[in-house]
C-alpha cells in the first residue's frame, strides 16, 4: 500500500503548500524568477520538439491516407487537430516534466539534505509553501503560453516537412488547417495544460521535499518526480478527455 502512503502525504503537502503565505513580498521575487526560468528557459527545447513533432505527424498522416476520395486538405485538418488536442499539451508536458520536474525535485531535495529547509523552517516560514507555491503558480501561468507557441510551431513544422518532402502542396495544407476549426479544442488543450502544469510541479516539489539522506537520494527523488508525473499526465490526459470530449 505504498501508493496510499504517498497519496496521503502528497495531499498533506498540497494542503500545507496552499495555506496562507506569511509575507507575500517574499513570494513575488521567487515567482518572477520561476516565470523566467520555466518560460524563457524551456522555449528552446519546446521549439525543437514541436517542429519535429508536427513534421512527423504530417508525413505519417499523408502516408496513412490511402483513400483517393478524401481530399489532401484533410491532412491539414488531422495534423492541426492532433497537434492542438493531444500532441502540444500532452507531449510538451511530458518533455517539461523531464526538464522542469527533475530540476525542481533536485533543487528542493538538495535543500532538504543540506538542511536549508530546516534553516527556512527555523525562521517560521512555511517551507513547503515558500519553496513550491511560486513554482506551481509560475508553471500554471506560463505553460499555456508555451503550449500555444508549441501549437503554432508544430503546425508550421508540418507545413515545412510536407512541402519539402513534396507529399502535400502548400495550398492543400493551408486550406486544411483553416477548415472546420473548433475553438473549443484550444480551451480543452489549455485545461489539460494547466492540470499538467500543476501535476508536474507539485509532484516534483513533493518528491524533493520528502528526500531523506544524501546526494544519492536526491537523484532518486529527481527520477521519481519524472516517472510519477509522467504517469499522472497520461492518466489525467485520459480522464480529462473522457470527461470533456465525450
Amino acid at each position: 500500500m505504498n501508493w496510499l502512503f504517498h497519496l496521503g502525504r502528497y495531499w498533506m503537502f498540497i494542503k500545507e503548500m496552499l495555506s496562507r503565505p506569511e509575507k507575500l513580498s517574499i513570494y513575488w521575487k521567487q515567482l518572477l524568477r520561476e516565470l523566467d526560468n520555466f518560460g524563457y528557459g524551456s522555449l528552446g527545447i519546446v521549439a525543437l520538439t514541436s517542429v519535429f513533432m508536427g513534421a512527423v505527424i504530417t508525413i505519417q498522416t499523408v502516408y496513412n491516407l490511402v483513400n483517393p476520395l478524401v481530399p489532401m486538405s484533410a491532412v491539414g485538418i488531422v495534423a492541426r487537430d492532433s497537434i492542438i488536442l493531444e500532441f502540444s499539451p500532452t507531449m510538451m508536458s511530458l518533455v517539461l516534466a523531464g526538464k522542469i520536474g527533475s530540476s525542481i525535485a533536485s533543487e528542493i531535495g538538495t535543500m532538504r539534505v543540506t538542511e536549508q529547509i530546516d534553516a527556512i523552517e527555523i525562521m517560521g516560514i512555511n517551507s513547503a509553501s515558500y519553496l513550491s507555491l511560486p513554482k506551481v503558480v509560475a508553471a500554471i501561468l506560463i505553460f499555456p503560453f508555451v503550449v500555444i507557441i508549441s501549437m503554432f510551431l508544430g503546425i508550421f513544422g508540418g507545413w515545412i516537412a510536407g512541402t519539402l518532402a513534396g507529399v502535400i502542396s502548400s495550398a492543400d495544407y493551408i486550406n486544411g488547417i483553416q477548415d472546420s476549426f473548433v475553438p473549443f479544442n484550444i480551451v480543452f488543450a489549455l485545461i489539460k495544460t494547466v492540470t499538467f502544469a500543476f501535476l508536474i510541479t507539485s509532484v516534483a516539489a513533493y518528491h524533493g521535499y520528502h528526500t531523506e539522506g544524501g546526494a544519492l537520494e536526491v537523484g532518486q527523488s529527481s527520477t521519481n518526480a519524472v516517472v510519477y508525473s509522467s504517469i499522472l499526465i497520461l492518466v489525467f490526459d485520459y480522464i480529462l478527455t473522457q470527461l470533456i470530449l465525450t
Partner: peptide, 12 residues
C-alpha cells in the same frame, strides 16, 4: 531564535 547549522545550511 537564531541557529547556526552544523553544515552551514546557506541558501545556494
Amino acid at each position: 531564535i537564531g541557529m547556526v547549522f552544523q553544515g552551514g545550511a546557506l541558501f545556494d
